[in-house]
């Protein structure tokens, strides 16, 4: 039984990792077709020379940062308020937004922005993408931060009030510092989800706000291209570095 499970687990881990490792390995393949013909940095050079990709990366980072800041800040405050005393209306709304398929979120935001812009004379752009991402990231933040709050002893906050801190001071000087690891985890989740999003983004992005996932999507549809392999490796390494950094922040 134990041997069977161990054998099975190694097959399962292979299933999870082999496709990604193969993808990475072939980013160094000298040939455009999927047959190994020697080592090259060519595709990485191509990626770094491609200005459209650079613009897409900047767009994606700006969007992810904006959405992360807005969603983490408002989600943390909301989680704290819900933890203090239940807010069924908001809680159920967040739950509903979690259950809403991404494509439905996308088209409803598209319809909403189009309708609103008829009166506001604005256009789809980076800002609409940020707002759209905040909309679906909020529930993740509340979920993660509330989980952290539930493990926290409420007597710390009572002690602060007892020692003369107002409610705001108790939140600012005691609860918030203790909540820090949860907030970092929530922000990290927001950032990766926002950075990676294609479905909602492609619907609400303006003409000049193409993001990295939109470009990868277009390239993937066109066919096998070693540049996408190289780009995938770069993104994975960058996200990995971010997770390690966040882990450090969390342990502080």
């Amino acid at each position: 039984m134990k041997r069977f499970l161990a054998l099975y687990a190694s097959v399962a881990y292979a299933f999870l990792y082999v496709p990604l490792l193969v993808l990475g390995a072939f980013s160094f393949n000298a040939s455009r077709i999927a047959v190994w013909q020697g080592f090259t940095w060519q595709w990485y050079r191509n990626v770094f020379r491609n200005e459209a990709l650079l613009d897409g990366t900047i767009h994606s980072v700006v969007i992810a940062l904006g959405a992360t800041i807005l969603a983490t800040a408002s989600g943390t405050l909301a989680a704290y308020a819900i933890w203090k005393r239940s807010a069924p209306l908001l809680t159920n709304s967040l739950y509903l937004s979690l259950l809403t398929p991404e494509i439905v979120t996308g088209v409803s935001l598209l319809a909403f922005f189009q309708w609103a812009f008829r009166y506001l004379h604005l256009q789809l752009g980076l800002d609409t993408v940020i707002l759209a991402h905040v909309s679906f990231c909020l529930a993740y933040v509340v979920l993660v931060v509330i989980a952290r709050l539930r493990t926290m002893d409420s007597s710390f906050e009572e002690a602060a009030l007892d020692l003369g801190a107002t409610e705001w001071q108790a939140f600012r000087h005691v609860t918030l510092p203790l909540l820090w690891p949860g907030i970092v985890a929530a922000a990290l989740l927001c950032f990766t989800v926002s950075f990676d999003d294609y479905v909602v983004t492609s619907l609400v992005a303006g003409v000049n706000s193409e993001t990295l996932p939109m470009m990868i999507y277009a390239m993937a549809r066109r066919g096998v291209s070693p540049e996408v392999n190289a780009l995938s490796v770069l993104i994975t390494v960058a996200l990995g570095a971010l997770i390690l950094l966040a882990g450090r922040l969390e342990r502080r």
Binding site: P19, L20, V22, L23, F26, I33, A34, T192, F195, D196, Y198, P213, I216, Y217, A220, G223, V224, V228, N229, S232, I235, T236, L239, G240, I243
Partner: peptide
């Protein structure tokens, strides 16, 4: 934690006619 799109692309890279 890696990109969902990249994970799909990894399988496309394996399974395509020219994969």
């Amino acid at each position: 934690w890696t990109s969902f799109l990249i994970r799909i692309y990894a399988w496309m890279f394996l399974l395509r006619d020219t994969g």
